[in-house]
Design a protein around this nucleic acid. Sequence first.
DNA 1: GGCAGCCACTGCGCAAGGCAGTGACTGTTT
DNA 2: AAACAGTCACTGCCTTGCGCAGTGGCTGCC
Lengths: 158, 158
Amino acid sequence: MPDQRELATSAALALPRFVGSTALFHAAVAERMAVTPTELHCLHLLHGGVSDSPTELARLLGMSTGAFTRLLDRMEQHRLAERAPDPADRRRLVVRPLPDRMAELAELYAPMARFVGERLARLDRRQLTALVGFLTDGTAAAEQASGNLPDVTQAITG
Amino acid sequence: MPDQRELATSAALALPRFVGSTALFHAAVAERMAVTPTELHCLHLLHGGVSDSPTELARLLGMSTGAFTRLLDRMEQHRLAERAPDPADRRRLVVRPLPDRMAELAELYAPMARFVGERLARLDRRQLTALVGFLTDGTAAAEQASGNLPDVTQAITG
DNA sequence: GGCAGCCACTGCGCAAGGCAGTGACTGTTT
DNA sequence: AAACAGTCACTGCCTTGCGCAGTGGCTGCC
């Protein structure tokens, strides 16, 4: 039976592999939908209700606003999202996800969703709390670490 | 205090955000090193000892062997890796990571590495076991799911 | 009413990657 | 041994996603 230290090492090694394989899975789903991984990523942000502002979405996706305009063009073509005017500010617009291809998306994600559901159901409260804490704090840490690296958000803030 | 079901939902929501922010962090590190995210991903595979075969690495990176040749060219230029002949088969070659820029890499990863270390140290054995199991099984599930995605009716892209 | 600043958008150029084909090399078969 | 099919990394050609810098429209503040 492995001790605490070995387990921590295993986790530290398993983490990047998990992220890598997950990214590959996303790329595979995107290809199946004849869509780029970036479009899919954006779609997730939209459906998650994270933001509907082009500038904000561009920042979250790590790209320039100019590139995001083209991304939006493609997403409209592919019926993933649509532009709507912002009544409060006529410079801005609001990005809205379209339900059109949601069934398709859900079908592709079904195997992974099932896996996650089953796996999480096997954990007790203490384990779940640890997992959630690790993920949420890790998200914050990654975002902060990204921000502290110079020259990263140059295209957007400049 | 949240019950089991709420915690599972939180985890399911936190998961994609964690993966997304981690991917952005990787992209930021890559940009800081004047390198593409793909090069960095490949470098991780090399240092992790996952494989040293170009064909296998191309598969793991989700790209063609032709593109991997160019990737290798760049990685040699950037002093991230080098080609070496495979004595057993003269068609093949072996990709070896270079130690040249490891200090730079370690420095950029230091904040995240510290976070992971501290966070994992706070977990008990049961929590660690759950985390490792989730990550390793998730990796396998993602790889398998990438391999056989269900067929989906193609939408018309106008 | 003028002005600085922000918004999404556009022309241009670059570079990463797919595709299909090439030459070198392998193990196998007759 | 000689021909064969299969595999390996590599190469030209092309597509495309994105950054950069600039544009016009709009806002809020003097």
